[in-house]
Nucleic acid binder design. Sequence first.
DNA 1: GAAATCATTTTGTGATCACAAAATGACACG
DNA 2: CGTGTCATTTTGTGATCACAAAATGATTTC
Lengths: 237, 237
Amino acid sequence: MALRRSALQSGPVKEATGPSTSRGATRGQVDAAVRSGLLSGRFIPGKAVTIRGLAAELGVSPMPVREVLQRLAAENALEVKPNGRVQVPDMTPARFDEVLKARRLLEPELAELALPHLTSRDAKDLRSIDDDIDQRLISGDAEAYMRLNHAFHFRIYRASGSKVLLPLIDSLWLQFAPFMRTVYGRVGTASLEDRHKEAIRAIEEQDSAALRAAIEADITDGMGLLGKEILSNASGG
Amino acid sequence: MALRRSALQSGPVKEATGPSTSRGATRGQVDAAVRSGLLSGRFIPGKAVTIRGLAAELGVSPMPVREVLQRLAAENALEVKPNGRVQVPDMTPARFDEVLKARRLLEPELAELALPHLTSRDAKDLRSIDDDIDQRLISGDAEAYMRLNHAFHFRIYRASGSKVLLPLIDSLWLQFAPFMRTVYGRVGTASLEDRHKEAIRAIEEQDSAALRAAIEADITDGMGLLGKEILSNASGG
DNA sequence: GAAATCATTTTGTGATCACAAAATGACACG
DNA sequence: CGTGTCATTTTGTGATCACAAAATGATTTC
């Protein structure tokens, strides 16, 4: 049979554009592939992730996969069950509340830290990303929407140059993204509303309070949709 | 000479009291050893951590060590340099500010979440730990102090049953603990003041606002001492 | 027909190996 | 005496192997 290309890899694993020959190149490839898969919703909560399976899918040995899975488990993006099995964690109401709380505490703060580093050039790029998002919402491409929404937020956060808060927020996104995807798969993306335009305006005007408010509202609104679903899911079986 | 026992292992690695025969027992041992070493300050910032070195020290093969180092690197407790070398991260003023900010945002929140689960029995245990801390402060045993101070805080936080905020705070402690140790080694522990007694009283009275205030003041005061040192360190070489 | 039992396969884990890159230290040269 | 060069050693990385635990599925038994 012809070797079917996995959904995880969009191109040849070797000879990528990134650091191809540097130390730990293979591990970096695997890490990027799994991270991207989680953030865009290609991993479903509850889905088992096997070392050999992923290794075969990516065309590498089990070794780098083992290290990457440990890495993502440490970030609570994956769950190591007592028998050693690794799976995408299921979302629970308690877990959801905590993620929402943590996001609302950390993300407005980091956005404010990033604001002085954000230029009109960044605002322009963000507007471009946001336009793209609007298109995807209409066409209902949930996977592309999630990827772009992540890009939008982290374009802001990354400008802060943060080495502490940013990884924490990274962990949070990895935790709720898979659940996010299942919800969009059920209710669609048409009803989604965000505060991206308010955020862009706040950046253009260097209005710290307005940026905080926009980010917080964006989180509350976006997670609100998810929250309704998890409750109906928990009660309705 | 007789085989000198490493500072990392207080007893035989195998046949420990914990889950000795379960899946990933060796990895758990290594993980606990390194974590404990970081939290009690037995790892100095800038110190290189080699896979083979740690493996030999703990009497295991390099394999579980590799996975543990990746795990801790994912939590920003260790730093993987571009050449693959792993070391305890150095503290910088910017990094310090972020850790302080994150702690002040997250820890009072988690303490408040934990409060309803904290009983008078917990208050009793906390008071016992705090008495122990006072003893160590006088005797100047920085390593024991750090271990007990961690135990005090996380006895509170763990009661929350948190699966999201707790790991985030865990990561933060792993990040500043090694630096904390170097400061105590320089200025001693006698000048340390905490708000543990206020926290215990707040728990006994189930006073949410008072607990938040105690935790926040404890962080501010404790980190304040560290902050002064990092500044003098940055300017004075 | 449902449940228990047993053989088979899958999977995670720890160990070892081979290789390349990097660090280290000795040595020659200016 | 300082500096650049080269051989040696150390170290991280990826691959493979052997083993035990767990999951899977067929088969037997009541």
